[in-house]
């Protein structure tokens, strides 16, 4: 059933089956997200698209829009929730922006800028996550993984290779490479796979191009993520 709902007080039309986030995007309205991607079904793991509907917190990427709903998104309360989620993501991994070659092109960092996250607030985990530099063209730095599973989904559903997987549960969850040795070099992974170009953070990095664009002149150095993510080319880009 198509109809209209209110997003932060402004009417947003929707088609049957559209989620809150999809309908908002179609109407040119940005709702923050990390694990959502237009080419894949909703994943609902990062919860950055959290919105408030009728007093409840729901994932905007997964919740189908309904007629007459009043949805709160860009409010101090929702942005505060998002900031806390970002802070938890930051302390759970090793996110040292000054030494990351994705800095300036990283969606996690860009959202932290947009939502004015000034401090990690919580105690850091400082986990031990060795890198995998075995592949000739691509480096895996697991320190920055946020478990969005975009690489898992892209490799399985688009590249037909199932190179990546998440293993274990809860706090022990981590990204692994599907090879007997566990090394990326021992898979049929290629640098032009969709999975090699979809990481929103700095895990899957192409070798020898890390600083081709200088720090300070990168995507989110030039424009905030709420503008970049709404550009037409961003729809199928990383």
């Amino acid at each position: 059933m198509s109809g209209t709902f209110l997003l932060d007080g402004q009417p947003v039309p929707f088609e049957p089956g559209q989620t809150i986030l999809e309908a908002a995007r179609a109407a040119g309205r940005y709702i923050p997200h990390l694990c959502w991607h237009p080419d894949f079904p909703p994943h609902g793991s990062c919860k950055l698209c959290i919105v408030k509907v009728a007093g409840r917190h729901v994932s905007g990427c997964a919740m189908p829009a309904k007629e007459g709903w009043e949805v709160e998104s860009d409010t101090p309360e929702m942005n505060g929730e998002r900031r806390a989620l970002l802070q938890m993501l930051f302390v759970e991994g090793n996110h040292f922006c000054p030494s990351c070659e994705k800095s300036g092109d990283c969606q996690l960092q860009a959202l932290a800028y947009d939502l004015e996250m000034l401090t990690p607030r919580f105690d850091h985990f400082f986990p031990d996550r060795p890198v995998d530099a075995s592949h000739p063209e691509v480096l895996l730095d697991f320190n920055r993984c946020i478990y969005c599973e975009l690489c898992v989904r892209a490799s399985r559903d688009k590249d037909g290779k199932s190179v990546f997987a998440l293993t274990n549960r809860g706090i022990h969850k981590h990204l692994v490479v599907n090879a007997e040795s566990g090394r990326l070099a021992d898979t049929d992974f290629a640098a032009d796979d969709m999975a090699a170009n979809i990481c929103p953070v700095g895990v899957i990095l192409h070798k020898r191009v890390g600083f081709a664009v200088a720090i300070g002149e990168r995507t989110y150095d030039r424009a905030p993520i709420h503008e970049v993510a709404m550009r037409p080319e961003a729809a199928s880009d990383d």
């Binding site: 090793n94 040292f96 000034l118 986990p127």
Partner: peptide
């Protein structure tokens, strides 16, 4: 704010 470069010895 987060330990920065010196904290990269933490693991």
């Amino acid at each position: 704010i987060n330990g920065g470069l010196p904290a990269q010895r933490n693991h």
